[in-house]
Design a binder for these strands. Sequence first.
RNA 1: GGAGCGAUCGCCUAGUUGGUCGAGGGCGCCGCACUGGAAAUGCGGUAUACCGGGUAACUGGUAUCGAGGGUUCGAAUCCCUCUCGCUCCGCCA
Length: 418
Amino acid sequence: MLPIQRIRDDPDSVRDGARRKGETAPIDELLAVDAEARSLRTTVEQARAEQRAASAAMRGKPSDDERAALTARKQRIQEDEARLAELDQRVDALLLEVPNPPHESVPDGGGPEDNVVARTWGDAPGFGFEPLPHYEIGERLGVFDFERAVKISGSRFVVLRGDGARLQRALTSFMLDVAREHGYSEVAPPFLVRREAMVGTAQLPKFEDEAYHADDGLFLIPTAEVPLTNLYAGEILDAAQLPMAHVALTPCWRREAGAAGKDTRGYIRLHQFEKVEMVRFTTPEASLDELELLTSHAEHVLQRLGLHYRVLLMCTGDLGFAQWKKYDVEVWAPGLRQWLEVSSCSVFADFQARRANIRYRSAPGEKPRHVHTLNGSALGVPRTFDALLETYQQEDGTVVIPEPLRGYLGGLDRLIAP
RNA sequence: GGAGCGAUCGCCUAGUUGGUCGAGGGCGCCGCACUGGAAAUGCGGUAUACCGGGUAACUGGUAUCGAGGGUUCGAAUCCCUCUCGCUCCGCCA
């Protein structure tokens, strides 16, 4: 959320920020309601001051006629207060719907075609045969069981089996360990969160239909970003603690995955998937550099696994509602012959920190300031899994397991059909 | 799920016959004094948000004692609802 002061002072830049993202911001309505609230606030506060003074003056000696006058004014004040409360609520609600304007270093653009390739790592693997897509490899190896997943849960779910299930577990352990090497402290958070937590990271109120929720009002997390970022909601951190870095492995639940109608085949777009997520809390001065660092941490996982990838600087049109600047990391899937997004590394400036009220004190006695928040996947598990199968597939149908994962699998070096 | 107790300023805590309470004390923190320096001690300061005035230091006002609502001229103090925490019981992995 943006400070109302900024919208009052410079509504054009905020409007323009929304436009560059291809979104709209209710700026005019916001300013109108705000102006009305402000003038009414002056009236109410003045009336209240008078009422308090009069009330204090007659302390202890209540006289009936005086009291009648005060009672009458009380009525009027209460009516104005009610209206003011309503206006304030509308201002707050509108503020939550104003998107974060992009950082100036973000290229303008309307969609994927305008994203800029920042760098590419490694080379596409070559094959002496026709490489297969992961779902064919996996089905032959008994790794995926899509049919039974449908029976249990419907479409957009998958069952992993045997060494496939083990490989995924190995992969997630490996990812967590790499993050730990980079200084992230591991967290095992709740997977169900309150509404306020979802508002804090800006999944709500705008994207309510994309989330699963339980009948007691809790939401299933769409990403570990939600519990991790909200870990320090309402708190004032010490400058000495910053930057703070956490990582978590969680399942992620997303409703929208089914609606898009694309990537219907394979282990790519599911209602439930696992993801290792990194979150960083930093000072405003450091946050842009921290985005580079965070992104490098995501890349590192792919480098260690020897997977070909590229990093995209996302254009304004591909930025999310809350994002200030974002890199996507895409891994090459040689069987599918396409790039798969496995990480999205974003910096939010103080947009989330304002919503969740996360602050820090730069020195004792200083006023608290909002932190900057960042997050990025390291990595999304299914697509990394896919790239692994496709990259390391052999002509005989087996899949060689890359060296760094073997230790997690009791030395297993190859997936073989049972 | 049942019963009881509780939620006050960064932390601990005083305050519950309604007014002198935005709120006292201790700790912590900041400044000053003392010191060669430090400790100890002494003195002073030390919440946040919003509205208005001022280039600014600052200043006038309002709100905030878990959250929301009510009673009252006036509520940290009374009433209602909710949330959270603790203790005991039940249930359960």
